[in-house]
């Protein structure tokens, strides 16, 4: 292994973080809440694909589509049941409710699938690619990076050139004003949750393919790391989440390789603190003027 291969696997891990971070950052930007249950939506997506392939014996493509549909529906249902009644409550109350939803999903999965980690079936079959002598990129890494790039470009185009995308930006900017202009705030927020959860399903596919194991706790740590990535890039900013996610993955992998594999978490979080101390709103975050 050399520097380049560490870098490439770091970018691949970072791409997964970026996909998850997009879910956090879009929801934060539009609904102004931290959706702590997002990491567990990833885990549910993984289990749906796992069950579809191992128990129902469907083809990988059907399993992936099932996973995405279930996650999307789950995300919208969570929003309608748990978050919508609290739209005017304090952010802290919504945060605790999100934590409750996270416990609920984790324990439901624990009841259905048990606590032991199960091996995730191979859903992505792409041959490894040998770039030069000694530098091989696995098929999963390749697919991860390509899929992430495609999704990010699609998302940017969606936000820029479509009406729902414009509605999202308007709601993020000023919810009340957007409503006065005829934007349906509720359906825009639902759409945001749907997109975020669908991205989480894709992330779970890529995550579980790269580390082929799944347990009810699979989503927790990547969820927190992705949350950190979203803050790193400036929470609420979509390009920020992408940059933050990829940077975080690269830093994590390089510090694992060159400094200490056990202390990599401490290093990742340490870098986050440094960045926030130098630029308190993250890399691409906007500084809000303070009214007196």
């Amino acid at each position: 292994m050399n520097f380049l291969s560490y870098l490439i696997s770091g970018i691949s891990l970072g791409s997964v973080y970026a996909l998850i971070a997009l879910g956090y950052t879009m929801v934060y930007g539009i609904a102004k809440m931290l959706n702590f249950a997002h990491g567990d939506v990833i885990m549910i997506g993984g289990f749906v694909m796992f069950t579809a392939v191992s128990s129902a014996g469907t083809s990988p493509l059907v399993a992936i589509v099932c996973g995405i549909i279930v996650c999307t529906v789950l995300g919208v249902v969570i929003e309608k049941v748990a978050y919508k009644p609290l739209r005017n409550a304090t952010p802290l109350a919504v945060l605790i409710t999100a934590i409750g939803v996270s416990y609920l999903l984790q324990n439901a999965a624990l009841l259905i699938f048990g606590s032991a980690a199960q091996s995730f079936p191979v859903l992505i079959e792409v041959p490894d690619w040998e770039i030069t002598e000694g530098l091989t990129v696995t098929g999963v890494t390749l697919v991860t990076i390509c899929v992430t790039i495609v999704i990010m470009i699609a998302l940017m185009l969606f936000m820029r050139y479509t009406k729902p995308g414009a509605a999202m930006q308007a709601v993020a900017e000023d919810r009340g004003a957007a409503q006065l202009m005829g934007v349906s705030v509720n359906s825009t927020i639902s759409l945001t949750f749907a997109i975020g959860s669908a991205l989480a399903a894709v992330a779970s596919l890529l995550l579980c393919s790269a580390y082929p194991q799944i347990s009810p706790y699979t989503g927790a740590m990547p969820g927190i790391k992705a949350f950190v990535a979203a803050v790193f890039g400036g929470i609420g900013s979509i390009p920020g989440a992408m940059i933050g996610g990829i940077l975080l993955g690269v830093i994590e992998n390089l510090s694992k390789a060159y400094i200490s594999s056990q202390l990599s978490d401490a290093i990742v979080f340490g870098v986050l603190i440094l960045v926030l101390l130098i630029k308190p709103t993250g890399i691409l975050g906007r500084k809000m003027a303070e009214k007196v």
Binding site: A82, P85, L86, N88, A89, T90, A93, I96, T97, I99, G100, V101, Y103, L104, N107, A108, L110, L111
Partner: peptide
């Protein structure tokens, strides 16, 4: 094994009841 599930549901319901106006 249902206890943590019920704990989670109680937590959500308590938050909703305390913070939703209606």
């Amino acid at each position: 094994s249902y206890r943590m599930l019920i704990y989670a549901i109680i937590l959500i319901v308590m938050m909703l009841v305390n913070n939703n106006e209606q």
